[in-house]
Every structure is written in C-alpha cells, then in structure tokens.
Amino acid sequence: MTTAAGSLATLLVLADGRLPAGGHAHSSGLEAQVSAGRIRHLADVDAFLRGRLATGGLVASAFAGAGCARTHAIEDLDFAFEVRTPSPALRHASRAQGKALFRAGRAMWPAPALHRPDVHQPVALGVVAAAAGLAPEQAAVAAAWHTISGPASAAVRLLGLDPYGVHALLARLAPDCDTIATKAMTYLEKSLDDLPADGAPLLDIGAEHHATWEVRLFAS
C-alpha cells in the first residue's frame, strides 16, 4: 500500500530532536551499557546504534507505520507492542514517551485520536503522523530515525564524544533508516501477530538494572 506522502517539512517538524516529546531524557538503554563498560568509544556507539536499528528500530518502524495506517486499531496495536516489550522499565519508558508525544501532537495537529491517555511511543508516533497528514512510510522512517538519534545524543552527553563524529555516524546510518523503514512497510498489510518482534535481551536486562539505580541521568 502506498499513500500519498505528506509535507516533507511537516515530517521534519515531527522528527526534530527538539520536539518537546520527552525524548531528551531517554538514552534508549545506552546509559546502562555505558555504565557496564560495554560502550566507551565512537565505534562502540556505531555498533550499538546498528543493533538498535536492526532490532527495536525495525519493530518501532513497523508499529509506527501501522499506527499511521490503522488509526482504527490503536488499542490492538498498542497491546501487540506491549507483548513485544518484555522489560517493565522499557514498557514504562515507552508509554511515558508516547504520552508526551500525544501532548505535543495535540498542540500541533489537534485530532480526537490524540486524546488517549498513554500509548506506546512507536504507535503514538504513527497516530500523530496520521494527524499531521503524513503517510505510513514517513511515520516508519521517523520511528527508525528516532531509534538512533536519541541514544546518539545521549552518547555525546554521557561519553563526551566529539559531536561531529557522532553526527557523521548518524549521516552514515541515515540510508539504513530508509532501508529499515522500507522493510517495515512490508508488514503494513500483515496481521498483528506477524508484525516484527526483534529484540535485544541485554538491553532489556540493562533497563531493569538501570531502573533500580539511585543515581541515573536518563529516565531509561
């Protein structure tokens, strides 16, 4: 299914890292891995982001595309994403970001669908994209981008990495975001059970440890 693409500038508004949708306080699991000593250098961040994109990125991208295309089935989609998120801490983080995204979405593109209390972030992204007049593939690529842009920013803050090096990495990964979104779109007509369920157990475990820390800089 191909839908007419919405405004590219509108897509930039939705995908902007300065969108006040709570993302700045989440590291997508990076803080836990930095603390464990598994991520120290730019090359480690490269591997982390590639892994994120191929697993959680594909799931998020597919659910964002589906959320945009199936605005009548949000609750089912939300449940399907819930059961793909084994870590309670990550479920909480995802819902908190979905709630924040709906808050921003209501201000930007008011729509009745945005008045739900809290929906998982990728599904919320799809619903907000639909309210903004964007197409499912645009929601899917925004979700793939969100998967890596948040932890990349966290890496700059946690590790003091050269921001040019990190953005060069993001530029290299941009075509991979397109590829993931294209792959995610192949699931658009699939049943909920057949949507991707790729995961990263170490990130799930790390998130559970992270949630118990007394001192943490990021919410997840």
Binding site: G22, H24, A25, S27, A154, L217, F218
Partner: peptide, 13 residues
C-alpha cells in the same frame, strides 16, 4: 530525570 540537561526539562521539553 533530566537526561544530563536540567534546563531542558524545565524550559525546552
């Protein structure tokens, strides 16, 4: 939690 940016959490986001 403020993700290393306390001012962001009270001003920008």
């Amino acid at each position: 939690e403020t993700g290393c940016c306390p001012h962001t959490a009270i001003r920008d986001d």
